[in-house]
């Protein structure tokens, strides 16, 4: 895993006691020197690499570590 992806993973793990899903802005804030669109590239690559996955309320999308979170189990998906 590259350095930038590790920053994201470390951040999410540091919060895992409270929550497993984050808005794009929460993750983009980890890269203050990057424009949002550059941060998007980093984060989307992590989706393709199956480190992160999306979660959607229908109107809003969030990001979390793949397979993490409580709702997963309750929906009976894997």
């Amino acid at each position: 895993m590259d350095e930038k992806a590790q920053i994201v993973v470390d951040f999410i793990k540091s919060k895992e006691k409270n929550k497993s899903k984050f808005y794009f802005k929460d993750l983009a804030a980890l890269f203050p020197d990057e424009k949002p669109r550059a941060a998007k590239k980093i984060i989307n690559k992590m989706i393709d690499d199956e480190i992160l996955e999306y979660w959607s309320s229908g109107s809003t999308t969030m990001y979390g570590l793949k397979g993490a979170g409580k709702q997963h189990d309750s929906e009976g998906e894997e």
Binding site: I47, Y54, S56, Q71
Partner: peptide, 12 residues
């Protein structure tokens, strides 16, 4: 509601 979003690589 379910949190599933799309197909692989898509967030919608």
């Amino acid at each position: 509601h379910g949190g599933i979003v799309g197909v692989f690589g898509y967030g919608g």
